[in-house]
Lab assay of single mutants.
Amino acid sequence: MTSCHIAEEHIQKVAIFGGTHGNELTGVFLVKHWLENGAEIQRTGLEVKPFITNPRAVKKCTRYIDCDLNRIFDLENLGKKMSEDLPYEVRRAQEINHLFGPKDSEDSYDIIFDLHNTTSNMGCTLILEDSRNNFLIQMFHYIKTSLAPLPCYVYLIEHPSLKYATTRSIAKYPVGIEVGPQPQGVLRADILDQMRKMIKHALDFIHHFNEGKEFPPCAIEVYKIIEKVDYPRDENGEIAAIIHPNLQDQDWKPLHPGDPMFLTLDGKTIPLGGDCTVYPVFVNEAAYYEKKEAFAKTTKLTLNAKSIRCCLH
């Protein structure tokens, strides 16, 4: 018999989150649709729960009410004593943790798909938090293969000092899905179709896995975050240069030392320094102006996964 890495157990509980950011409308629209008619997301033997994560922000069509829901799922915020004085999103995070967690427990949901849009030209993107997770690498390989020839990129946010504390991190297997470009507060049919297909293929993978299909060893190309880059700023902290036209919409493309990065209003080009080629992502993302992030630098690498098969009882 072929030796293989056996994944822990079959997958039982899956959640699909929309509206973690209330103005990213593809996930909101799909989740609302699936709450009314969820036939397309159901798979035999699998509990799939669509869920609106930040209903107040969705109602106002804004990213958040008090603070970013997708950055506060750490033990400090989840452990705060519940009171009306807490920011709305912290209270909501505790409610979500109660419903789908608790985080880092045996009772937490197996998989959470968190649906997002970006204003950046990132196409279909899967966000991975753990480079050693054979199950998710296999799932992402399946999704990428199923979507081809449509490109699907994998963004690895594993980093020693950049801690995200994402909404989906309460699950055993957290999956971020990011599709763009799409303006905030807008629905685009092409973007919706791409996100819908990503979810379909992900659920198909889980179904095949649960039925005992063995997935042979595989490898995927990923883009691992190195650092986030702020806009150049003046002495008052105001933005002093904008994304250069040569960099705009060039997510995932190589940016070499000396290539144009920013452009000042008086026409001066600010190039990339250093001696390493990087791959920019979230270029000129609207939501990241407040976070002082013009783009993120990534490096390209390959992740390998062992063969996996479900432990059938």
Rank of each mutant, 00 (worst) to 15 (best):
I157V: 15
V283A: 06
D275A: 09
P174Q: 15
K80G: 13
K297S: 09
L192P: 03
D259Y: 00
E76T: 12
E285W: 02
N117M: 02
H141A: 06
I239Y: 01
P232Q: 05
Y155A: 15
E47L: 09
R63G: 10
L46K: 04
K49C: 11
F262L: 03
I137V: 07
P280A: 05
G18A: 11
P50D: 05
N70V: 07
V28F: 11
P245T: 00
H116P: 06
Y142V: 03
E8S: 13
T125I: 00
E158H: 02
I220K: 02
I127W: 10
I239E: 01
G180T: 06
E178H: 15
D107P: 13
M198F: 04
T26K: 05
G212N: 00
F262C: 04
N117W: 03
T299M: 14
T26C: 09
G176L: 12
I170T: 08
F282C: 10
P232F: 02
T264E: 01
M195I: 02
L30G: 01
M261Y: 04
V90W: 10
W34K: 03
A241W: 05
L303C: 06
N284Y: 03
N23M: 03
P183R: 01
T125G: 08
R196E: 03
R56D: 13
K291A: 10
Q42A: 13
M261G: 02
A286Y: 08
P271A: 11
P181K: 04
T299V: 15
L272D: 03
R91L: 14
M122D: 05
N210M: 06
Y142S: 02
K59N: 12
T20L: 05
P50I: 00
D114Y: 07
H256W: 03
L99S: 10
F262N: 02
T62F: 09
D130I: 03
I96E: 06
E221A: 01
T125F: 08
K291C: 09
I225D: 15
P183N: 07
T62G: 11
L312P: 15
W252P: 02
Y279L: 04
C4T: 14
Q138Y: 03
L25Y: 08
E214P: 08
K60W: 09
A15I: 03
C4R: 14
T167C: 14
I52N: 05
Q250T: 07
T2R: 14
T167F: 09
G274K: 01
R91A: 15
E36V: 07
P232H: 00
H21N: 08
M139I: 02
F17G: 06
A241R: 03
V222I: 02
T118E: 01
H5N: 14
N134P: 12
L147E: 05
V14C: 10
G274H: 01
N210I: 06
A286C: 11
L99R: 12
I111W: 04
F29A: 15
L247N: 04
Q248I: 10
Y142E: 03
G22N: 07
T118C: 14
A171L: 04
I270H: 00
T119M: 06
H10G: 12
T20F: 04
Y231H: 00
E214R: 08
E76G: 13
A57K: 02
N134I: 06
K253D: 00
G27L: 03
I170F: 09
H116E: 02
H33S: 10
R56F: 11
I225K: 15
F29C: 15
K32H: 09
S131W: 06
N121F: 01
V154L: 00
T167Q: 09
T167P: 15
I127H: 07
I111R: 03
N23F: 04
D249N: 07
Y88W: 12
I220Y: 01
L126A: 02
L312W: 13
Y173V: 09
S161W: 07
H21A: 13
L272M: 11
F113W: 01
H116I: 00
L99A: 12
R63S: 12
A296G: 08
N77H: 14
N236E: 09
V222L: 01
C67F: 10
I157K: 15
D114W: 00
E214L: 12
A202W: 05
Y288Q: 14
P50S: 07
E178V: 15
H208Y: 13
G18C: 02
H207D: 10
I170Y: 07
V175Y: 04
D266T: 09
V186Q: 12
G267W: 00
D259A: 07
Y109E: 02
C276G: 10
C4F: 11
G101L: 05
I177C: 01
L126D: 03
L99D: 09
S83V: 13
Q12T: 09
N304D: 08
E235V: 10
D230S: 12
F29I: 08
P257I: 00
Y289N: 15
A294N: 03
L247A: 03
H201F: 11
T302C: 08
V186I: 11
A7Q: 14
Q138R: 05
D190C: 06
D66I: 01
L265R: 11
D68P: 04
S161V: 10
D114N: 02
E84T: 13
I143Y: 02
A39N: 12
N54I: 01
H10I: 10
D104G: 15
M139D: 06
G180L: 06
L255Q: 00
K300Q: 07
K297L: 15
R63P: 12
H208F: 13
P245Y: 00
K60P: 06
I6E: 15
I11P: 07
C310P: 07
L126V: 02
Y64R: 07
Q42Y: 10
N236G: 08
K292F: 08
F282N: 12
K59V: 11
I6D: 15
T20S: 10
K81G: 14
Y231C: 00
M261I: 15
C4L: 14
K103A: 11
L156M: 10
E293K: 14
H33R: 12
T145W: 06
W34G: 04
V154H: 06
G212W: 00
L128M: 07
G19H: 00
L272G: 02
L303G: 06
L301R: 07
I52A: 00
T44E: 13
E235S: 11
P151M: 06
Y231P: 04
N70C: 06
I72E: 12
H244F: 04
E290H: 10
Y223N: 06
H5A: 14
I65H: 07
V58W: 07
L162H: 15
D85C: 13
